[in-house]
């Protein structure tokens, strides 16, 4: 179809397209935008720059902010300083294992809440949606975990923000990188890791850490799609609507795909001899109770910067409780 005006739009992601959230940017978001614009005057042609070809993981925000890309799959998880309040889920574990619910909640809050919108505008971005939900984080170890005391002195690799979850458990949290978990556990540098199922299977982590404990850390929000504000503001209503509506399609497809992948991951890992156990309520409560309340420290730091950290913390926790989640610990009420 020929458009009267067709503009080239660069979309950037630090992760490669094998990552589900990038795959659906390419296979769901872009086609949905183009379908919505079909027959209209303005067309968008996408130059897809993934896997660090233009910007690496954690660099997407600045590349989009500065205008090198018009749209970026921005990972708040890897940019905890510029998108600090978006990391609210990582300071509040044990809230919900329902990733789709967390994602839609975060998308809704960021669309509606002026304080969250302001944090995007401060970095010259317009949040489009397309929340990247991460499935329930698990504890995978090379030893069985029946009670909290089993973790005493064990070295557990975890992504940066999740190292805090290990404080107070007796385990030694080590900040690690998903790509090297396998070798680190195999050689014995780590005795286990905190990781999510949809990444554990491709990394074959169950081969070296066959004891999988669903501890209840919960699903997480890791980022979403954002557009350069100057560029976005210059677009017509049709383009703006097409972009935001495409994120609805993205969210549905992404989470359906994610749920299927998680189910398959458990099936395959169990089939390969891994032991999957659900931590009982007592152990979860003991774990959560033993943790430092990192959320309060996080909120206080943001409050000091004038970013309404405490309010966002309550906003998120209230919203999740209203949506039916039963947090093991009410981080906001201490």
């Amino acid at each position: 179809p020929a458009f009267a005006h067709e503009q080239l739009v660069t979309i950037v992601a630090g992760h490669p397209p094998v990552f589900r959230w990038v795959k659906h940017a390419s296979q769901t978001f872009i086609p949905a935008v183009q379908a919505a614009l079909e027959g209209s005057e303005h067309g968008l042609k996408f130059s897809e720059q993934y896997g660090g070809a233009l910007a690496g993981v954690g660099e997407e925000l600045e590349a989009t902010e500065e205008g090198l890309a018009e749209i970026g799959l921005v990972s708040s998880l890897f940019d905890p300083s510029k998108l600090a309040i978006q990391n609210v889920t990582y300071v509040t574990p044990f809230v919900s294992a329902d990733t789709a619910k967390i994602s839609s909640m975060m998308d809704r809050l960021q669309a509606e809440d002026p304080r969250m919108r302001a944090s995007w505008e401060a970095v010259n971005l317009e949040y489009l949606g397309c929340a990247i939900g991460i499935d329930d984080y698990l504890l995978m170890t090379d030893f069985p975990v029946e009670r909290l005391a089993d973790l005493e002195g064990r070295k557990i690799g975890a992504p940066g923000p999740a190292v805090n979850w290990l404080k107070g458990t007796g385990a030694v949290g080590v900040s690690g990188n998903l790509t090297t978990y396998y070798n680190e556990i195999k050689s014995g540098v780590y005795d286990g890791v905190i990781v999510f199922a949809s990444a554990a299977l491709p990394g074959k982590l169950h081969e070296v850490a066959p004891y999988i404990t669903r501890m209840g850390f919960g699903g997480q929000y890791a980022g979403g799609l954002a557009a350069n504000k100057d560029w976005y503001d210059a677009q017509g209503i049709a383009v703006k609507a097409a972009l935001k509506d495409a994120c609805t399609a993205y969210s549905e497809a992404y989470h359906a795909d994610l749920d299927a992948a998680v189910a398959k991951a458990f099936e395959v890992m169990q089939g390969a001899g891994a032991t999957v156990t659900d931590a009982d309520a007592e152990m979860r409560a003991a774990w959560a109770a033993g943790m430092e309340n990192n959320a309060l420290e996080w909120a206080a730091r943001l409050d000091a910067q004038g970013q309404a950290g405490s309010e966002i913390l309550s906003l998120y926790m209230d919203a999740m409780r209203e949506a039916g989640a039963t947090p093991v610990r009410d981080w906001d009420k201490e």
Binding site: P80, S81, K82, A84, Y90, V91, A122, G160, P161, V163, N164, K167, G173, S175, E292, N294, E297, W298, R301, Q305
Partner: peptide, 10 residues
């Protein structure tokens, strides 16, 4: 913006 790397609390 007081940009930093790492995780607050760790």
């Amino acid at each position: 913006r007081d940009e930093f790397v790492g995780a607050v609390g760790d």
